[in-house]
C-alpha cells in the first residue's frame, strides 16, 4: 500500500467534508475499527521483522497526520458553529412559561405555623375525634348536664340509632382532648391539638357552624397566668410579627379558673378575640383522676379562622369552606 497516497487522499477527503458528520464518516473510513489505516496495521503481521519496523513507523506517522487533520478540521467546524450559534437571537422579553402550581389552603398554612411555633417550645401535636361523647365534650370539662353554661356551646347532636345508646355529638371545641390526653399521659406535659369543631349557630362573616380550633395545654408543678402570658405574647410575636399587640381580659369558661380572653389588635385598630384561655380548673384534674391541687396548668383554644383573618386580611370566614380557587390560589 502506498502510504503517501493514502495520506494525500485522506487530506483531500477531509478538506472536502462539509460538516461534522461527514468529517466523522471520513475519520471512521481511515481510522475506524475497519478503516484503511487500521486494516493496514493488521496486515503488518505478514511482513518480516525489519519491514514491520519501518512500515509500522510510517503507518504510525500517517495515522498521526490524519488524526491531526481531523482534529484541525473539527476545530474549524466548531468555531464556525459557535460563531453562528452565538449570533442567534431569541425574544428574551417573552414571559416565562407558566408552571402549574398547587396551593395549600390558608387554614392549613396557619395551623402548620402554629404547630411549628409551639413545637419549638416543647409542645407535642396530638389529635382527637370530631365525633365526640357528651362526657368528654362537657362533663369531664366541669360542664355537667343542666349547667347553664352549656348554652354557650350550641351543639349538633347525633341521632341515636338505639334508644339506650349514649348521647354523641360533634365536638363544639377541641377542649375534650385536655381530658383525653390527661387520662392517658403523665405530667409534666405540653400539647397542642388542632382540629375541626362544630356549633349549631347562625353564621356570619366571623362565625361559621364549622370551624377550626387549636387547643393548647401545659401541665406542670408550677404554672402561672404570668407564664401563660409569656407564652402567648411570644407566640403572637412569632406569628404576627414583633409589633403584635395583644390584650388579656377576663372571660368565663367552666373548665378554666381564672378564665381569660386573648385579643389581638387588627389593622383597623379593633380588638379581635383570638383565643379563650385560663388556668386548668381543679375539677378537670379531678375528672381525669389526678389528686387535687398536685398539678397546675394552663389551657387555651385558638380560633384558626380568626388568626387567618388577621394575618391575611380575610373578611368572611365562610369563604374558607367553599373551595373557591380564586381564594386558594392567592396562598
Amino acid at each position: 500500500m502506498d502510504l503517501d497516497q493514502v495520506s494525500k487522499e485522506a487530506q483531500q477527503a477531509i478538506n472536502k467534508c462539509r460538516d461534522l458528520s461527514e468529517l466523522e464518516e471520513t475519520a471512521r473510513h481511515y481510522l475506524g475499527k475497519k478503516g484503511v489505516v487500521t486494516t493496514a496495521f493488521s496486515q503488518l503481521t505478514k511482513l518480516s521483522l525489519s519491514q514491520k519496523k519501518s512500515e509500522g513507523k510510517k503507518l504510525n506517522q500517517v495515522q498521526a497526520i490524519i488524526a491531526d487533520q481531523v482534529k484541525q478540521k473539527e476545530k474549524d467546524f466548531k468555531e464556525n458553529l459557535f460563531q453562528s450559534q452565538s449570533e442567534s437571537k431569541i425574544d428574551i422579553s417573552r414571559p416565562g412559561k407558566k408552571i402549574k402550581l398547587g396551593h395549600l389552603h390558608p387554614l392549613t398554612k396557619v395551623v402548620r405555623e402554629v404547630e411549628d411555633i409551639f413545637q419549638l417550645i416543647g409542645f407535642s401535636v396530638v389529635e382527637g375525634p370530631e365525633l365526640e361523647t357528651e362526657y368528654y365534650n362537657f362533663d369531664a370539662l366541669n360542664i355537667p348536664a343542666d349547667h347553664p353554661a352549656r348554652d354557650i356551646w350550641d351543639t349538633f347532636w347525633i341521632k341515636k340509632s338505639k334508644p339506650k345508646q349514649k348521647k354523641n355529638l360533634l365536638r363544639t371545641h377541641t377542649s375534650p382532648n385536655q381530658a383525653r390526653y390527661l387520662e392517658k399521659n403523665q405530667p409534666p406535659l405540653r400539647i397542642i391539638v388542632p382540629g375541626m369543631c362544630y356549633r349549631h349557630e347562625a353564621t356570619d362573616r366571623t362565625h361559621g357552624f364549622q370551624f377550626m380550633q387549636i387547643e393548647g395545654l401545659m401541665v406542670d408543678e408550677q404554672v402561672s397566668l404570668a407564664n401563660f402570658k409569656a407564652v402567648v405574647e411570644r407566640f403572637s410575636q412569632m406569628f404576627f410579627g414583633p409589633d403584635a399587640e395583644i390584650r388579656i381580659i377576663p372571660d368565663y369558661f367552666p373548665f378554666t379558673e381564672p378564665s381569660v380572653e386573648v385579643s389581638m389588635r387588627n389593622k383597623a385598630g379593633e380588638w379581635l378575640e383570638i383565643m379563650g384561655a385560663g388556668l386548668v380548673h381543679p375539677n378537670v384534674f379531678k375528672a381525669v383522676g389526678y389528686p387535687p391541687y398536685q398539678w397546675q396548668g394552663f389551657a387555651f383554644g385558638v380560633g384558626v379562622e380568626r388568626l387567618a383573618m388577621i394575618k391575611y386580611g380575610l373578611d368572611d370566614v365562610r369563604q374558607l369552606y367553599q373551595g373557591d380557587l380564586r381564594l386558594i390560589q392567592q396562598f
Binding site: Q119, P188, R190, L225, N227, K229, A230, V231, R247, I248
Partner: peptide, 18 residues
C-alpha cells in the same frame, strides 16, 4: 388586672416534643 401581670416564661423540664 391581667394587663398588670408581667409576662414570665415558664420554667419546665427540657422534654422535646414527641
Amino acid at each position: 388586672g391581667y394587663s398588670q401581670i408581667k409576662a414570665d416564661p415558664p420554667r419546665a423540664l427540657l422534654i422535646p416534643p414527641k
